[in-house]
Amino acid sequence: MSIQHFRVALIPFFAAFCLPVFAHPETLVKVKDAEDQLGARVGYIELDLNSGKILESFRPEERFPMMSTFKVLLCGAVLSRVDAGQEQLGRRIHYSQNDLVEYSPVTEKHLTDGMTVRELCSAAITMSDNTAANLLLTTIGGPKELTAFLHNMGDHVTRLDRWEPELNEAIPNDERDTTMPAAMATTLRKLLTGELLTLASRQQLIDWMEADKVAGPLLRSALPAGWFIADKSGAGERGSRGIIAALGPDGKPSRIVVIYTTGSQATMDERNRQIAEIGASLIKHW
């Protein structure tokens, strides 16, 4: 067993022997301040990774656009098919120029040779490549099948209805392509620590998230040296922004954090800054 596999296998073990965790309302004060600064709703939840206990939450059962955070769930569904012998990570998928959609920095470079399922998941999570996500959605049967996968996990809230990039439209009061912070946090925890996926697939999923290259201005910008984070960000229309993450000190994750916002007129930089400040408060009061 590799060191990384050992780390993920012992996530519940280490967490069980940690000192009790206590909620700190100071972080919620910052979440509410972010709402004021952005002029928009902000949803927040913080779960203990081992027990699933909610440590703090704000608007945990209000719907927010998922945006690209759905790509972690998508690759979880792909990995479940791999575990069941219905898919192979090494299978190569070929596609054409007509398949390319807006923001496809990886797939646009491989029109000639195609990409493997493993490479597509890596591109979808680490670079948020939209064509990679659409190609992977095709392998599982489309958005409705991802929703069905989530329902089978016990998540009857999260739903995907459309493809990239239309799913980022974020129309107010439109339930399409949305989740709730509580539902997303619980589902992410199941994917990373539950028995739904094999140990190898859980490790692969967290490795992809740990290698995320496009979430630097968010929670990662607030992390002290030595902290662990595996995350996936999302951005959408109407001032929408979000991030889902597993993080913790001492090089291992111990909490799940989900943050979503929508309806702001603020710039992307300002949305990023507010999420980073929430992260800084979380870490300060850990």
Rank of each mutant, 00 (worst) to 15 (best):
Val157Lys: 05
Ala280Tyr: 01
Arg176Val: 02
Trp227Ile: 07
Asp207Thr: 01
Ile259Tyr: 14
Thr147Phe: 13
Thr267Met: 02
Leu120Gly: 08
Glu56Pro: 11
Gln86Cys: 13
Ile229Thr: 01
Lys284Ile: 02
Arg159Trp: 07
Val82Met: 06
Val117Tyr: 00
Leu28Thr: 07
Leu223Phe: 01
Thr131Gln: 15
Leu247Trp: 05
Gly263Asn: 03
Thr267Gly: 09
Arg273Gly: 11
Val72Arg: 02
Glu145Asp: 05
His110Val: 15
Ala222Trp: 07
Gly52Lys: 07
Asn130Cys: 09
Ala280His: 02
Trp163Pro: 09
Leu247Val: 05
Pro224Asn: 01
Lys252His: 07
Pro143Asp: 01
Thr126Trp: 03
Arg176Thr: 05
Ile54His: 06
Glu145His: 00
Gly90Val: 04
Ala77Val: 05
Gly39Tyr: 14
Arg118Gly: 13
Thr27Glu: 02
Pro224Arg: 07
Thr107Ala: 07
Arg271Ala: 09
Tyr95Ile: 00
Leu38Lys: 06
Arg118Thr: 15
Ala245Gln: 03
Asn50Leu: 08
Ala183Tyr: 11
Ala182Phe: 10
Leu28Cys: 07
Ser221Asp: 11
Trp286Val: 12
Lys71Val: 08
Thr262Phe: 13
Ala40Gln: 03
Arg59Ser: 09
His24Cys: 04
Val72Phe: 13
Ser281Ala: 08
Leu137Arg: 04
Pro217Lys: 15
Lys32Ser: 02
Glu164Met: 02
Arg81Asn: 03
Arg162Phe: 14
Ser221Cys: 07
Asp177Cys: 03
Gly52Val: 04
Val214Asn: 02
Arg41Ser: 09
Tyr44Phe: 13
Val257Arg: 02
Glu237Asp: 15
Met153Asp: 12
Leu150Cys: 10
Val78Gln: 12
Asp177Gly: 03
Ala222Gln: 02
Glu210Tyr: 15
Phe149Ile: 11
Ile229Cys: 09
Phe228Lys: 14
Lys190Asp: 15
Gly142Gln: 09
Thr262His: 10
Ile256Ser: 12
Leu89Pro: 02
Glu195Gln: 07
Arg92Pro: 09
Leu205Asp: 14
Leu136Val: 04
Met268Gly: 12
Gly141Ala: 09
Ala133Arg: 03
Ala215Lys: 10
Tyr95His: 00
Arg159Tyr: 02
Glu210Ser: 14
Lys213Asp: 07
Asp129Lys: 05
Gln274Glu: 01
Pro105Leu: 09
Tyr95Ser: 01
Asp207Asn: 12
Ala200Val: 07
Asp36Phe: 10
Lys30Met: 15
Asn173Phe: 02
Ser240Pro: 04
Leu219Arg: 12
Ser281Lys: 15
Gln203Asn: 12
Ser254Ala: 03
Lys232Asp: 15
Leu120Cys: 00
Asn272His: 08
Thr262Arg: 11
Asp174Gly: 09
Ser51Arg: 11
Thr186Asn: 02
Arg159Phe: 15
Asp36Thr: 07
Arg92Glu: 04
Glu166Gln: 04
Ser233Met: 13
Ala124Glu: 05
Asp83His: 03
Ser240Gly: 06
Asp36Ala: 03
Trp227Tyr: 00
Ala185Ser: 05
Gly85Arg: 02
Trp163Leu: 08
Pro224Ser: 07
Leu146Gly: 01
Leu89Phe: 04
Asn130Lys: 01
Val117Asn: 04
Ile259Val: 10
Pro253Tyr: 00
Met67Glu: 07
Gln274Leu: 02
Thr27Arg: 07
Ser201His: 11
Ala40His: 05
His285Arg: 04
Thr158Pro: 04
Gln97Phe: 03
Asp161Thr: 03
Gly154His: 03
Gly141Val: 13
Leu74Phe: 10
Pro65Asp: 11
Arg118Ala: 15
Gln37Pro: 13
Asn272Asp: 13
Val258Pro: 07
Asp48Leu: 02
Thr69Gly: 03
Glu195Cys: 00
Ser51Ile: 09
Thr178Met: 00
Pro143Glu: 10
Lys53Ala: 08
Gly114Ala: 03
Thr193Ala: 06
Arg59Asn: 00
Glu26Asp: 00
Gln265Met: 11
Glu195Leu: 07
Val157Phe: 06
Pro60Leu: 02
Ile93Trp: 14
Ile259Asp: 13
Leu137Thr: 06
Asn50Thr: 04
Val214Ser: 04
Ile206Gln: 09
Ala124Met: 03
Leu28Tyr: 11
Ser122Trp: 15
Asp174Cys: 00
Pro224Phe: 12
Ile54Gln: 02
Leu136Phe: 01
Ala123Asn: 00
Arg271Thr: 05
